[in-house]
Design a protein around this nucleic acid. Structure first.
Lengths: 180, 180
DNA sequence: GAAATATGATTAACATGTTAAATGAAATCG
DNA sequence: CGATTTCATTTAACATGTTAATCATATTTC
């Protein structure tokens, strides 16, 4: 029910032929991943200039904010909080530490782990950025509507929750395709 | 109204102090950007293994699908369609061309522009990937609910639309903060 | 129509995403 | 307790995101 038309057009001149859509599928531009990507980009476009004017990337800001919410935290837990993969986090922590925005020390009980915390300098930076960040968030909320925004967040969390129960289909080719 | 507590804690031992939150702000993990990021990641986690088994990245797949929907298209328009920045697109097109999945030629009327189209090999690849891709999308729709999914997409598009009218505040520090 | 300006596309440089492999330390097994 | 396995983190390698700069071609201006 998917393989619409097997238009094997042979080796034709690609631009001087029919202008009709070849493999339509589910109108690509309106797919869920694209909708989510575009919406997130529309939001981040509002924040990036402010962060950038303070020399911060989006991810660095996420880490500093996560650290500001706790006293100290292990790297793995920080990755979960800031929703970053280990390798990204590892690099960013190295740079933030070099900038003296965070501090790091080994866990006494387990030398594999290290514990990260924000520095006084990092806190000052957060306090410098927070006002414009809050103002932007408030402007977005005003524009879109606080009620609708809360509803959207609920639906996003529910999407995330329901997909967490869906096992990913690894080698689809070897399975019959039906799961449940 | 933002600068909650200016807890300039001096040069203290960062881990042996209070465990209370220092700069709470808007509970960071539930911010709109994080919600959108997490939701999108939950969705893409379903698709990536299938794409990967065909040697495709998410972005390469977006480009091929966009190209499959048209006969030929200029690079700038393709960037708009696939929602990619010029530099990313430029690199990916170079690689896709080297793999003979796309074809490229100069526009006769304007030698600055080039026109891209999908190749027969590219079409075959799409037809090979589409079934599992459609199956995954169908599974997501079943799980979350078709009605709710459509509603979510509407809300995302409305968010994107309403933010497009919000001018970004460049140098917040130099402005009085109110816009409208 | 030559100089200045604007535009389409690419390249450069640096940061992050993504998967695999490596490294070092802790836990487990025999 | 020594070998194996597991675990936390980092490094490696490659692809993309992001902004600035470059390059070639078009357009505009005088």
């Amino acid at each position: 029910m998917v393989r619409k038309n097997s238009s094997r057009t042979g080796g034709l001149e690609p631009a001087s032929d029919a202008k009709a859509r070849r493999v339509p599928m589910r109108d690509f531009a309106r797919s869920l991943p694209m909708s989510l990507l575009r919406a997130r980009e529309a939001v981040m476009r509002q924040f990036r200039p402010s962060l950038r004017s303070h020399g911060l990337t989006e991810q660095q800001w996420r880490i500093l904010r996560a650290l500001a919410a706790v006293d100290a935290i292990e790297v793995t837990e920080l990755a979960r909080m800031a929703f970053l993969l280990g390798p990204s986090l590892s690099r960013i922590l190295r740079d933030l530490e070099a900038s003296h925005l965070i501090e790091r020390k080994l866990a006494k009980a387990d030398l594999r782990r290290s514990v990260v915390s924000i520095s006084a300098k990092g806190l000052r930076l957060i306090e410098a950025v927070a006002p414009s960040s809050e103002a932007i968030y408030a402007a977005i909320t005003r524009r879109y509507g606080a009620r609708k925004l809360a509803e959207l967040q609920d639906m996003l969390h529910e999407l995330e929750r329901s997909l967490s129960e869906l096992r990913v289909a690894e080698d689809q080719s070897a399975e019959s395709g039906e799961f449940e």
